[in-house]
Design a protein around this nucleic acid. Structure first.
Length: 608
RNA sequence: GCCCCCGUAGCUCAGUGGAUAGAGCGUCGGCCUCCGGAGCCGAAAGCCGCAGUUCGAGCCUGCGCGGGGGCGCCA
């Protein structure tokens, strides 16, 4: 937001250095820490180090301070006419090798407020980048229920999509559910054999019921210790039935296909409802079952191109010796199979086919995969093969890996039914908020209370998933995830509510022309500075593909607002000019908190 | 055997080459006659080890120690 001033000063610094034979290194600007005032700074250590390398015998820190002081003098000196004073800068200091430029707050405060309030919900939006990004996430297997690990995936993916979209990328949201495989067939088999027609009516009840069937079926099919011969025979018979069903599915048997579609729809109905709750709107659905045929075709193409080696004649599979083809001498991507010896495809094959479709049909320039870190090797292999295949977009394929979500008692396991379901956590979240709401907000109607409970409960859950960097594992503790105190979603939402509360109390919001031509408190300055950082934070989070960056910013902003709120009176301010200016600042803060929350897929309530 | 991730305060985590390493929870102490206390203000407490690169290392490189994950017919 202060690029112009930065450039003006930079030009002066360059001019001075050129005149005085100082080999200027790259200038990096950053906000001044610790000051409580507001401005930007840069250091001259790198420049001094360059001089050292050029042969001068000097102490770098001392020399850096020297340069900073000289430049300060030059910038301030009006007599040398090519280096005059700079508009908008109130004060310049040279300290410890740094050049600090303090802004004249009056001018900048007005500029920041103007931009926030004129842009409103678009404040922080980046200019269009003419580049298309596809984010693939929310890809649970069907015929199971949606657990808290799926929730982490979906939330990370959605927030990433919101960030890159707001940052200026043309964005496509894609989901890739695993709707076929032995696990799916296992549920089909058990449903058909033991439970046909007994499904419950509710969307979530039915989805969760499928998981129950899966757990039971897995137990029936699992080899046990000390099995009697009869038990062994029974188990093997079941297993044979299951595989026969898979064969029929593959052959397109109508009965099995209908059964599959019907049960799959139950899962998808539950998934769609959870996505509705999370305000996720998927643009493109790719089903694993639909990329099977294209996958088989690309195997032949890769063999023909000499990328894959066909060992089928020897009774083997089709493989890609990735390291060898890339000319690597060290083991890195290894070798992997793209077609089983029985002619069926694998996950890797399907991902290759899917990537081809993304590039050719959807023209994506960047492809982001939000997938569990345990599949990191698999995706690196896929990207490497895409590169061998000649897709330039392979360079811009990115695996956003995230650590898995486990429970205090160990890893989650759908097979064993040891999972924490998203819906259960969410229901509990709402219960907990409702329990405190009657005390916190007694004036709310029943309907409002329920709506707010959903906003706050989800806010807590979502923020707890975003406030940890994605590559870290999470041990899910419901009390931590649903905490409303401290560094949490509700803390940020509360800042929004408080800002709203002040604005509601104001008789008029006629502050369009109010100025900040009075002595600002450090709380006001810090709040304005935070607001001004929002657009750059959007870009950083999007460029680094890191939702955490925005989650951290939102907390800092809320924290700064809460401090301001306690320290600086707004409505009680006697002076009307100052009161209006502060109201304007509160309005800008409310808007920016709302924008940040929206990017984090968290609702910004007006009351709570 | 090889590859990837992680090691920062009692606990859970930020901080990816610059000034004084920050939060939350927990502990201890203050603040509701004042715009909403889901809040604010304060205190105690910390970079796994050894080398190296650099003017400067929690951050980069190497080695070691400790924890987690992965490695040709699962997804």
């Amino acid at each position: 937001m202060f690029e112009k001033e930065q450039q003006t000063i930079e030009a002066k610094v360059r001019a001075y250095c050129a005149q005085n034979d100082i080999p200027l290194a790259e200038l990096k600007w950053q906000p001044i820490p610790f000051s409580g005032e507001w401005g930007i700074s840069t250091s001259f250590f790198a420049t001094a180090a360059l001089e050292t390398r050029a042969g001068k015998k000097i102490q770098v820190p001392k020399r850096a301070q020297e340069i900073a002081e000289q430049i300060k003098g030059a910038v301030l000196s009006v007599s040398k006419d090519q280096i005059g004073s700079v508009d908008g800068i109130s004060r310049i200091e040279a300290v410890k090798g740094y050049l600090n430029l303090y802004f004249s707050t009056f001018e900048y405060a007005r500029r920041v407020m103007d931009e926030v309030l004129a842009s409103g919900p678009d404040f922080g939006r980046g200019a269009p980048k003419n580049e298309r990004v596809m984010v693939e996430y929310a890809q649970p297997n069907t015929h199971h229920s949606f657990h808290i690990g799926h929730a982490r995936n979906t939330i990370l993916g959605e927030v990433l999509a919101r960030l890159v979209e707001f940052a200026g990328f043309d964005t496509i949201r894609a989901s890739y559910p695993g709707d076929i495989g032995l696990g799916v067939i296992t549920v089909l088999w058990a449903y058909d054999k033991f439970y046909k027609g007994q499904e419950p009516a509710g969307i979530h009840e039915r989805g969760q019921w499928l998981l129950k069937i899966y757990v039971e079926a897995t137990a029936l099919l699992e080899k046990k210790e000390n099995e009697t011969p009869q038990e062994t025979a029974q188990r093997e018979a079941y297993d044979a039935e299951r595989h026969e069903m898979y064969r029929k599915w593959d052959a397109g048997d109508k009965y099995v296909r209908d059964l599959w579609l019907k049960t799959r729809e139950w899962s998808l109905a539950e998934l769609r409802d959870i996505l509705r709750i999370l305000d996720v709107k998927i643009d493109v659905w790719f089903f694993e079952s639909e990329v099977d045929e294209p996958a088989k075709e690309i195997v032949e193409e890769l063999v023909k191109k000499g990328i894959a080696d066909d060992e089928r004649q020897q009774g083997g599979a089709v493989i890609v010796k990735i390291d060898e083809k890339l000319g690597l001498t060290k083991e890195k991507y290894r070798t992997n199979i793209i077609l089983r010896s029985d002619g069926t495809t694998l996950y890797l094959t399907k991902d290759l086919a899917l990537a081809k479709q993304k590039f050719e049909q959807y023209h994506v320039d960047r492809s982001i995969y939000v997938v569990d870190v345990r599949q990191s090797m698999h995706l690196q292999q896929a990207f490497a093969i895409l590169k061998l295949w000649g897709f330039p977009q392979a360079e811009k394929c990115y695996h956003l890996g995230y650590g898995f979500v486990s429970l205090p008692e160990g890893a989650m396991s759908a097979r064993r039914g040891r999972v924490v379901l998203f819906k259960d956590v969410m229901d509990e979240a709402i219960r907990r908020v409702l329990a405190v709401e009657s005390e916190k907000a007694p004036e709310l109607s029943e309907a409002e209370r329920k709506k707010v409970a959903e906003q706050i409960g989800l806010g807590a859950l979502v923020y707890s998933m975003l406030s940890v960097d994605n590559n870290r594992d999470i041990v899910f503790d419901i009390n931590e995830a649903l905490s409303f105190d401290g560094r949490t979603g509700p803390y940020i939402q509360n800042a929004h509510v408080r800002a709203n509360s002040i604005l509601k109390k104001a008789k008029t919001l006629n502050f369009e022309h109010s100025t900040f031509d009075y002595e600002l408190t450090s709380h006001e300055i810090q709040l304005i500075e935070l607001l001004s950082r929002f657009p750059l934070t959007v870009q950083q989070a999007a460029n680094e593909y890191r939702p955490l960056v925005m989650a951290a910013y939102a907390y800092d902003l809320a924290n700064t607002f809460h401090s301001f709120y306690h320290a600086v009176p707004v409505m009680q301010t006697e002076n009307e000019e100052i009161r209006l200016a502060r109201l304007r600042l509160v309005a800008a803060a409310k808007q920016t908190i709302a924008n940040a929350l929206r990017l984090l897929d968290i609702q910004a309530p007006e009351v709570m």
